[in-house]
Simulated assay, not measured.
Amino acid sequence: MVRTVHCVKLKKEAEGLLTPPLPGPKGQWVYENISQEAWTAWQVHQTRLINEKHLNLLDRETRDYLMAQMDKYFADEAVDQADGYVPERE
């Protein structure tokens, strides 16, 4: 049976995540409020930031930066974009 959530990013009912994607209260909030579709879109954006900005995930400041960007992303606030990223043409 598919679990649905009211996704705060997409502003609609959508398929929810199977498990919390992060430990602790932040992960529980994402599990309860973010759809699989929105989480996947965030992961693509996060990966682009990591790759294009050459971020080191072992650095605590980098992880804090990504968490802040994630909060902004799901709140529909302006987020940093990857420098030099050009979307593929279809």
Results as ranks from 00 to 15, higher is better:
residue 1 M to I: 05
residue 1 M to L: 10
residue 2 V to T: 14
residue 4 T to F: 08
residue 4 T to G: 03
residue 4 T to R: 13
residue 5 V to L: 05
residue 5 V to C: 01
residue 6 H to K: 13
residue 7 C to I: 00
residue 13 E to C: 07
residue 14 A to N: 06
residue 14 A to S: 08
residue 17 L to N: 06
residue 18 L to D: 15
residue 21 P to V: 06
residue 23 P to C: 09
residue 25 P to T: 12
residue 25 P to A: 14
residue 26 K to D: 07
residue 27 G to R: 06
residue 27 G to Q: 05
residue 27 G to T: 04
residue 28 Q to T: 11
residue 28 Q to K: 13
residue 28 Q to S: 10
residue 31 Y to V: 01
residue 34 I to E: 02
residue 34 I to T: 01
residue 34 I to W: 01
residue 34 I to C: 01
residue 35 S to W: 04
residue 37 E to Q: 09
residue 37 E to W: 01
residue 37 E to T: 07
residue 40 T to L: 13
residue 40 T to E: 14
residue 42 W to N: 02
residue 42 W to E: 00
residue 42 W to F: 07
residue 43 Q to H: 11
residue 46 Q to M: 10
residue 46 Q to R: 15
residue 47 T to G: 15
residue 50 I to E: 06
residue 53 K to D: 04
residue 53 K to P: 01
residue 54 H to L: 11
residue 54 H to E: 15
residue 55 L to I: 00
residue 55 L to C: 04
residue 56 N to K: 14
residue 57 L to T: 07
residue 57 L to A: 06
residue 58 L to E: 12
residue 60 R to V: 11
residue 60 R to A: 13
residue 60 R to M: 09
residue 61 E to P: 04
residue 62 T to E: 05
residue 63 R to H: 07
residue 63 R to G: 04
residue 64 D to Y: 08
residue 64 D to C: 09
residue 64 D to M: 12
residue 64 D to E: 14
residue 65 Y to H: 12
residue 66 L to N: 07
residue 66 L to F: 05
residue 68 A to G: 13
residue 69 Q to W: 06
residue 71 D to P: 01
residue 71 D to Y: 09
residue 75 A to R: 14
residue 78 A to F: 12
residue 79 V to Y: 03
residue 79 V to G: 05
residue 82 A to Q: 03
residue 82 A to I: 02
residue 83 D to R: 13
residue 86 V to T: 09
residue 86 V to N: 05
residue 90 E to N: 11
